[in-house]
Design a protein around this nucleic acid. Structure first.
Lengths: 140, 140
DNA sequence: CCTGTTACTTGAGTGAATCAAGGATCATTG
DNA sequence: CAATGATCCTTGATTCACTCAAGTAACAGG
């Protein structure tokens, strides 16, 4: 399991809760992925393939090196969850798409990753709106 | 940079903001660590050494294998940020402690990781309390 | 065409994480 | 007190994420 991204000492309660939230969220994400024998990175990429798209687009969106995506997509391809087809418009490029099995695994993953849904579900609609507004303001 | 732990499609705005928060938080943590040439895991371990403690205690708290801690502490030791002293009470055990340089780097790290402070700082005291209450409720 | 740029891959290297196995020490108990 | 088992940590092997540098192939503009 990935080590938490958090300080021990926080200067306010709000910061402490923020840290706890991030930690629990990350662990839940990892656990949901592990349940399907996926790494968090694999689950992440798989989840961004609702439409077929190029490797570069993935790298841009995820803010990482293209070669990182090459590697992750290669593993997903080996697992039979993804295909890498040539792009007829540009023969340098590849179009990555989920296979039916990839669709199913991705669906099972989104079902398994209940944390955000559950957490939000503990709040009333009004409270959800308040939380959204507060977090938006906090994010600047 | 680590890939985000988040779904693309969210069923509510609150979930989407939650995901964004986690993503921004994680990236900020990683960036602050990188600024000091530390990995997130190294920064994490270093931050939990306000008092000297055993390897096992670290592994327990961080929820990972003991050998993982061995590895990370070894690197921190190489960097001169940490010492591994024998435990006089139990010669199997080692006591890990920050060196003065470790203290300094850790202090610089907590200064560099401004995200949580800044985010909370954008809220009024009342709003901070509201956020704390809402997140506590959401966490269950 | 020729040049430069773009899209992706490959290879090398670091580090996190897990598992299995082992050494040393403690703690218990027959 | 000696044997047994548990505990603390390390080592070694493996997988994967991530980054950087370098390379190939194909596009796009002059």
């Amino acid at each position: 399991m990935a080590l938490p991204n958090g300080p021990v000492t926080t200067s306010s309660e709000a910061e402490a809760v923020l840290f706890e939230l991030v930690d629990v969220y990350d662990r839940a994400y990892e656990a949901a992925a592990a349940q399907l024998s996926l790494s968090p990175a694999q689950a992440c990429v798989l989840g961004r393939l609702d439409e077929r798209r190029g490797m570069g687009a993935l790298a841009d969106e995820l803010g990482c090196d293209a070669s990182n995506i090459t590697q992750i997509v290669a593993r997903l391809e080996t697992l039979g969850l993804v295909t890498r087809e040539p792009n007829p418009q540009d023969r340098r490029a590849r179009l990555v798409a989920r296979t039916p099995r990839g669709d199913e695994i991705n669906h099972r993953f989104t079902t398994a990753f209940t944390f955000a849904r559950t957490a939000v579900g503990r709040l009333s609609p009004d409270e959800q709106d308040q939380l959204t507004a507060l977090l938006r303001k906090a994010l600047g």
